[in-house]
């Protein structure tokens, strides 16, 4: 085992931030992709999930078609569409942009499904109570239905976020210098220590994912605490 070959100051630096000035890479780029992807796909996914649940009939059909289509093709195909197809139409996308778009569209489909199951789990009594105290339909959705649904789906969302973080590794197949690509470059340069390099990568991803799920767990505990003690923000 040649761990000292892998853990040189230069390699560690590259794994963490890539060739930072100028090109951000490594763990930093992976986390940037994941963070942007999580925020955007949650927003879009919630919109589609809500549309599928409560939209008019054509809207529901569109949303269902979107979800069923994107859940049944590989993310890699989507990334290839986003990166290799636009040049045929006279537009050259950036690597980062295409990966992000593909990641967001793909995971939004799953998050839409997650939210839909959450919406189905909202007890009818809650909605009746909201109506009884005179809330308008918009208020019912914003203050009662969506908060309860979002709280109920936190565990399922955590699973999706972890998958999204894992999915960022696919970006290396079009040459974006995120963590996997940096690892591959280090491996190609060393040649003699593949196990050490890739085991390091596995370990880094493992730690990132465990911290993500631990963070979501803390967030959920916090929300539960606020719920139990009725500490709602006013």
């Amino acid at each position: 085992m040649n761990w000292e070959l892998v853990f040189t100051a230069n390699n560690i630096r590259r794994l963490l931030i890539g060739d930072f000035p100028p090109a951000l890479g490594g763990v930093a780029l992976t986390l940037t992709l994941a963070a942007l992807g999580i925020v955007a796909s949650t927003i879009i996914g919630f919109a589609i999930g809500y549309a599928r649940f409560a939209g008019s009939r054509p809207v529901r059909w569109l949303a269902t078609g979107y979800v069923e289509f994107l859940r049944n093709i590989p993310l890699l195909i989507l990334i290839f569409w986003a990166y290799f197809a636009p040049p045929y139409f006279g537009y050259t996308p950036s690597k980062f942009g295409s990966v992000l778009v593909a990641l967001v569209l793909f995971n939004a489909a799953y998050i839409a499904e997650v939210l839909r199951s959450g919406l189905l789990s909202v007890p009818v009594g809650q909605i009746e109570a909201a109506r009884a105290v005179g809330m308008s339909p918009t208020q019912q959705v914003l203050y009662v239905v969506l908060p309860i649904a979002a709280y109920n789906v936190i565990p399922a969302l955590t699973g999706r976020y972890i998958t999204l973080l894992k999915n960022t590794s696919l970006a290396f197949l079009i040459g974006l210098t995120e963590l996997t690509e940096i690892g591959r470059q280090i491996n190609n340069r060393l040649l003699t220590a593949p196990i050490e390099v890739y085991a390091t990568l596995l370990l880094i991803y493992f730690l990132l994912n465990r911290s993500l799920s631990a963070g979501m767990g803390l967030f959920e505990d916090r929300l539960r605490f606020n719920r139990v003690f009725c500490r709602f923000a006013k």
């Binding site: 894992k166 590794s169 996997t180 465990r210």
Partner: peptide, 21 residues
Amino acid sequence: EFSRNAPPLVQILFWYFSATV
């Protein structure tokens, strides 16, 4: 935990490159 939390792509690379060693 390891098989679920590590990206499949990295696992493919790991097994492929370490098997030869």
